[in-house]
């Protein structure tokens, strides 16, 4: 409870500081906004996510065919890319980020929509899930990296990689060829086989390949997949997580 309160204070302070300029673009979530969002949705999103947001659009099956992941089911499905604890809905900024950046290898980036259009379509997407009408989920505090990567830190990151069981799925060298993956044991919550990210290829980092994005993925987990949230179990052992992040980044080369 105390941690939650702290996080809430942090989040609300952040919201306050950002309030004036966020307001400039983000329209109020009302009927008119959702109506505009619906029109955008029907052109840009429906063909994969379906008319009712079930992730069963006419083009959706081909993304992974008999396997997963399928397009997101907006009605009840879990959201992978969040800054909120496991099992919770994402905050608006999470949705905005996904719409803008797309999902590497799966969904194209919709940065071609204006910011206002993106907020409109997000308002419409949220209307598929009653959960968004409840209290807004509280984002985990996602700090900036404590400092640049160090050799000792990366060495420790390797130890953490094993301790956290990353190799079980992502493989000993991060190629996404861990035992559970090779044995076909990794399923999403719909029972479709999915493959873990290849940590040696930044283009396959679905939630983004920045240090913060990787940190976020480890802390929140990817709901709907076997990737768990580490935020609670490691309880404030931030240094280990950042070492792990830098170790993971050291497995792939920077490309332009």
């Amino acid at each position: 409870m105390r941690i939650h309160a702290l996080v809430a204070i942090g989040a609300s302070l952040l919201m306050l500081s950002g309030a004036s300029f966020v307001h400039a673009v983000k329209p109020e979530d009302n009927q008119a906004t959702r109506e505009k969002g619906k029109q955008i949705y029907e052109h840009a999103c429906l063909l994969c996510h379906g008319v009712d947001g079930r992730g069963d659009g006419p083009a959706g099956w081909f993304l992974s065919r008999y396997e997963g992941p399928r397009p997101r089911d907006f009605r009840g499905g879990s959201y992978k890319f969040r800054s909120t604890p496991s099992g919770e809905l994402p905050i608006d900024q999470d949705l905005f980020r996904t719409v803008t950046q797309g999902i590497s290898g799966h969904m194209p980036p919709y940065s071609g929509l204006s910011e206002e259009e993106r907020w409109q379509v997000i308002a419409y997407i949220k209307s598929f899930n009653q959960g968004f009408k409840g209290p807004v989920s509280i984002a985990l505090l996602l700090p900036n990296p404590p400092g640049p990567p160090s050799a000792a830190g990366i060495d420790n990151g390797r130890t953490v990689y094993i301790k956290y069981g990353c190799q079980n799925c992502h493989g000993d060298n991060g190629y996404g060829d861990g035992k559970e993956a090779l044995d076909g044991n990794l399923k999403d919550t719909y029972g479709h086989t999915i493959s873990p990210g290849d940590l040696t290829e930044r283009a396959s980092f679905k939630g983004g390949s920045s240090a913060q994005a990787i940190y976020r993925g480890i802390m929140t987990g990817l709901d709907g997949t076997p990737m768990p949230s580490y935020a609670d179990t490691i309880g404030g052992n931030d240094k280990d997580v950042w070492d792990l992040v830098y170790y993971i980044l050291s497995l792939s080369q920077e490309r332009q």
């Binding site: 099992g87 919550t189 768990p228 949230s229 580490y230 179990t233």
Partner: peptide
């Protein structure tokens, strides 16, 4: 079909 909670349980880690 949706994740209610998916938490890592690192050996010696905190209970949830």
């Amino acid at each position: 079909n949706s994740t209610a909670l998916n938490v890592a349980m690192v050996a010696g880690g905190n209970p949830i």
